[in-house]
Design a protein around this nucleic acid. Structure first.
Lengths: 260, 260
DNA sequence: GACGTCAGTTTATGCTGTAAGGAGTTCGCG
DNA sequence: CGCGAACTCCTTACAGCATAAACTGACGTC
């Protein structure tokens, strides 16, 4: 399921994301036993392990030895919590350093992003429409734009390339990430799953080769689903789609540089 | 939220998807008042209008004048229903006819897919890991492979290109689709939303320009968010990302053709 | 008319996010 | 010191979700 950015008071959301609140003077009442960061960390741990479907306020509370309602002291709603999780996770990508040239740097940036998405598959379920406007989103963006600025292309073009680069990482990463999660949750590997299904495919459509001749031709010549031992065939395909899209996009940038 | 393919008995799922059941002899008991197709159509109508979040078994039942439980006579579970919805919606793309050349055909194919995703945004929430193995998925795939076969590229390369092409449509389409849905659900346009947020962005990070100099440079030179009247700025950007990715990918294919 | 089969309903269970209200702790102020 | 305000955290409650289980009543065949 897709999760949209929090719909609450924008001022408070932004203050929480950028951590500009905290007067932190001595105040009456019992000392806080939790903190926003503790809660966000617990939530990220759960989401990494169980996926977005396993992330409930009760689950986060349990992990911290509290009830679900205790969290609402620190965080106004689940959707704000998700924004905070998203931003905090992105902090992992904040350490990017520029290297030799724009092309190799872009490849490195894209690979870091790919790895990040596979570490935190749930991040891909946070909607990009109405994006989370947290600090680390901008840090990651700043890294990429800094790299690409060296191409000398104009800002208009750059903005489009940024979107295109994100696309070519995100979509295949989503497939790969969902594939891993499905294996964890169902206990069945992709390859097993595919093997079971494809048997029934022949049963249910015995004339498959006549109905889909070109498709059958394309699939027919491949070495038969020789998956590597640790990574499913489907995930390998996703990875290849990512690499080819990226390579072609980078070639396209070089062409654009010569034209301008 | 992402929705995974049905986990039930694979044989029954496949039979339902490919409609190979229906002995349809005269049987005792009351005449069925509904049918799988009626249910699937109702569900698609709801999902188109309200998004995946608005799609519940109760909602589908209500629309057909039945209770939620009545649906279970026809469909084993909600997740099977989703598979059926997915496949039936895809049937809209089944009429593709080949035209002049592989390049223009691919552009047309990609544009059809883009329009399709914007008509049925929820389709993008159906996971591609463990894909729905329904007939129309294969029809669409067959169309694309038939087009690309004319490039003369080898099957291994073709398979990668197919993935890459899907990626470059799906990810930006997802952003555009979610943007439209967010407008419908929240009643606030993307542009209004952005305007409200960006005000607080300056408040919460007054040193934005110093922290993110390159980003500020890139954004600074643009004509200030002059959105067209019907389509939000964010959606325009998504559309541009799609077009540029596609163009670059097609150029890449032409290069590959010369190399082989 | 009895019996088996099936459409569709009602009821119930265990989830979800979160609103409302209350209990108990700790501070500043008089 | 004592009081009230502020604060954390809890219990309870509600609406909505998918769906299991048991039931009702309609229909065809014997």
């Amino acid at each position: 399921m897709v999760v949209y950015a929090a719909q609450g008071d924008p001022q408070k959301s932004m203050a929480l994301l950028w951590r500009t609140a905290s007067p932190d003077t001595e105040r009456p009442g019992p000392k806080p036993g939790l903190s926003v960061d503790l809660i966000v960390d617990a939530a990220i741990t759960i989401a990494d392990a169980e996926g977005m479907a396993g992330l409930s306020m009760r689950a986060v509370g349990d992990r911290l030895g509290r009830t679900a309602m205790a969290l609402y002291t620190y965080v106004p709603s689940k959707s704000e919590l998700l924004d905070l999780m998203y931003d905090k996770a992105l902090a992992e990508l904040a350490g990017f350093r520029e290297g030799d040239g724009w092309r190799s740097d872009t490849v490195r940036w894209a690979n870091d992003l790919w790895d990040f998405y596979l570490r935190h598959p749930w991040v891909l379920q946070v909607s990009q429409a109405r994006p989370v406007l947290g600090p680390h989103e901008y840090v990651v963006l700043e890294s990429l734009v800094t790299i690409l600025r060296r191409t000398g292309l104009r800002p208009v073009m750059l903005r489009r390339l940024v979107s295109a680069l994100y696309s070519c990482v995100r979509e295949p990463a989503r497939t790969a990430a969902e594939s891993r999660l499905a294996e964890k949750v169902t206990g069945q590997s992709d390859d097993e799953w595919w093997y079971a299904r494809s048997a029934f495919l022949k049963e249910v459509s015995p004339d498959f080769a006549e109905r889909f001749p070109t498709l059958s031709w394309m699939e027919g010549e491949q070495a038969f689903r020789m998956a590597d031992e640790t990574v499913s065939y489907l995930e390998q395909e996703a990875r290849e789609a990512f690499e080819i899209s990226l390579a072609v996009l980078l070639d396209g940038i070089e062409v654009a540089m010569k034209v301008e």
